[in-house]
């Protein structure tokens, strides 16, 4: 329990900064929506005819931009990007910082097992992720509702946030797994963010070309796309893949950390 409290204290400041960032994002993003209503229905019809690769470039996706929730769908990609950067760096740092700051000896001579250290660190990270997610959820509902002209949006936003939570979890354990495997602790955060940027850019490349569609199982950003969640709901297949990936990566984190030759 002490470890959880200690980690929460250590991550408090950065969590507050991230939450302020995401609040700003939601407010600024939705605030802009007010200025661009009334583009008309014809644009929508035209957008629907557009091949996907063109939609990607025009930046509209398959969203109904005349509705607040459609515009929010556009914004969701950036919110997810922020959330995953937060998660992956949290995961990589929370495990690797003991070695980096030379506190690993101090921690591991305490009468707790390495497995337990990981469990407690993951618990603290989870609390961080949930806080981030709730802040985004509440601010989004408030802001989108304001512009939605009476339509119910909470359900859709709730679904999107569930998707975002899975993304956060997935990238958290990507971070911890990389930090647990890697030999040089300083590299953990860079490699994890490298993986993140790579999957992100891959997801954009897939939008540009159908032939790359097969790759969409590699990049989690394609599992939870706002367009798909808003139109069809969460896809059970992707949920299953995410859960399997999260389980496997968590197991890897535990196994590698237990066997790890710490760099002291």
């Amino acid at each position: 329990m002490n470890i959880v409290i200690r980690e929460l204290q250590a991550t408090r400041k950065s969590l507050i900064i991230w939450c302020v960032g995401v609040l700003f994002m939601v407010f600024a993003g939705m605030g802009k929506y007010a200025g661009m209503t009334g583009t008309g229905q014809t644009i929508n019809e035209l957008m629907a005819e557009m091949p996907e690769s063109l939609q990607a470039i025009m930046g509209s996706g398959g969203f109904d931009l005349t509705k607040a929730i459609g515009y929010y769908g556009l914004l969701f990609l950036y919110l997810a990007m922020m959330a995953t950067i937060h998660a992956v760096m949290l995961g990589a740092n929370i495990v690797s910082k003991e070695e980096r700051d030379k506190t690993a000896e101090f921690l591991l001579v305490k009468p707790i097992s390495r497995g337990k250290v990981i469990t407690l660190k993951l618990t603290a990270s989870l609390i961080n992720l949930v806080t981030f997610n709730l802040v985004t959820l509440v601010s989004s509902i408030v802001m989108v509702q304001r512009y939605a002209q009476g339509e119910a949006v909470s359900g859709d936003i709730g679904l999107l946030m569930i998707g975002m939570f899975f993304l956060q979890l997935l990238f958290l354990v990507v971070g911890t797994a990389i930090a647990a495997i890697i030999k040089r602790p300083k590299r953990a955060a860079s490699i994890s963010t490298g993986v993140l940027l790579l999957t992100f850019i891959l997801s954009i490349a897939i939008n540009l070309n159908d032939k790359l569609g097969i790759l969409k199982f590699i990049t989690p950003f394609k599992y939870y796309e706002a367009e798909q969640i808003l139109n069809e709901g969460l896809d059970p297949a992707y949920l299953t893949i995410s859960i399997i990936l999260i389980t496997v990566l968590t197991a890897i984190t535990y196994q590698s950390y237990k066997k790890k030759d710490l760099n002291i």
Binding site: E49, M50, P51, S53, L54, I57, A205, L208, N209, D210, K211, L212
Partner: peptide, 13 residues
């Protein structure tokens, strides 16, 4: 390398 297929899409559109 995605450009060739993109430009075909664009022509159709």
């Amino acid at each position: 390398s995605l450009y060739p297929s993109f430009s075909r899409d664009a022509e159709e559109f």
